[in-house]
């Protein structure tokens, strides 16, 4: 469905993303994992057309997203949810207007009553109450804001949802509810997800396939069970090792490989210091 072919993006002469290729199939949940500065968000911005890649192709079906016409042809099929739900919502708009924006753009005007029915259905999909429609974003909790962002993205009826760190601004318990909601959405025949995160625990929880990114390159890719339990690349191993374990039940799978991957892990992740 979506295929990215040797995508490259440079910032001030430095490669942020370098020759990245992968694809997302219909109905699939793919995780994109890496340390900060590894180029995760840049890939997302290129897919969404917010950034123009320096080289490579991004295809959706027959459309080539890297040129403007192609992006328009792909239209509403690819939507996004960003990290910070607060800044993703226009503070001067009501929930109703926020959700109506994509509907109006893609499906045109319709009678107010019909619109309300549609909006209620959208809110229900993300487990938000229907009486939020008249509220402004600052009257919602952060968790509600993030769900609203998901609802806005779903309003277009997308085939692929790009989720860029959708959980990192949320409290633990809110994260859990959000994850459950995403899982339900997917189970109910929702779009494919490309989930960008730095947390392997989240990947384990929801993804089917995972891509591990380091310094702008994909170093390992495969089904979650294989990559997380039998990582083959030292970067994946060290990222997994650094992730804090569950406090009360040690994952048996982790134990098995920890012993054989001790040496030189620190050297493995050489990141450019943030300037």
């Amino acid at each position: 469905m979506l295929s990215v072919e040797s995508l490259t993006k440079r910032y001030q002469g430095q490669d942020a993303v370098c020759g990245v290729s992968f694809s997302v199939a219909p109905g699939e949940i793919v995780g994109l994992v890496g340390a900060s500065g590894s180029g995760k968000s840049t890939i997302a911005r290129c897919i969404l057309g917010l950034e123009r890649p320096d080289a490579g192709l991004i295809r959706y079906g027959d459309a080539v997203l890297t040129d403007r016409a192609g992006r328009r042809a792909a239209g509403r099929a690819i939507q996004a949810v960003f990290q910070d739900p607060r800044s993703s919502l226009n503070p001067r708009w009501t929930v109703r207007r926020i959700l109506s924006e994509p509907l109006e753009t893609w499906f045109g005007r319709e009678p107010s009553a019909a619109r309300t029915v549609r909006l209620h259905a959208l809110l229900l999909q993300v487990t938000l109450s229907a009486d939020l429609l008249a509220r402004y974003p600052h009257e919602l909790s952060t968790g509600q804001c993030q769900r609203l962002c998901v609802a806005r993205a779903l309003a277009c009826g997308p085939a692929l949802l790009v989720l860029d760190e959708p959980l990192s601004a949320l409290d633990v318990s809110v994260q859990a509810r959000m994850l459950a909601m995403l899982r339900d959405l997917h189970a109910a025949g929702g779009p494919s997800f490309l989930l960008i995160t730095h947390d392997f625990a989240v990947v384990r929880e929801i993804c089917q396939r995972v891509l591990v990114l380091n310094a702008g390159r994909i170093v390992e890719a495969g089904p979650v069970a294989r990559v997380l339990d039998k990582p083959s690349h030292p970067v994946t191993r060290s990222l997994l090792l650094d992730a804090l374990p569950l406090p009360f039940q040690t994952a048996a799978a982790l134990d098995r490989w920890v012993d054989c991957t001790k040496p030189t892990l620190d050297v493995a992740i050489q990141r450019t210091p943030s300037s």
């Binding site: 239209g75 939507q79 800044s87 994509p102």
Partner: peptide, 14 residues
């Protein structure tokens, strides 16, 4: 550069 303008561009708002 605010999130909501980026979101609107993604949504295909004219």
């Amino acid at each position: 550069n605010e999130g909501y303008v980026q979101a609107a561009r993604t949504l295909g708002t004219p």
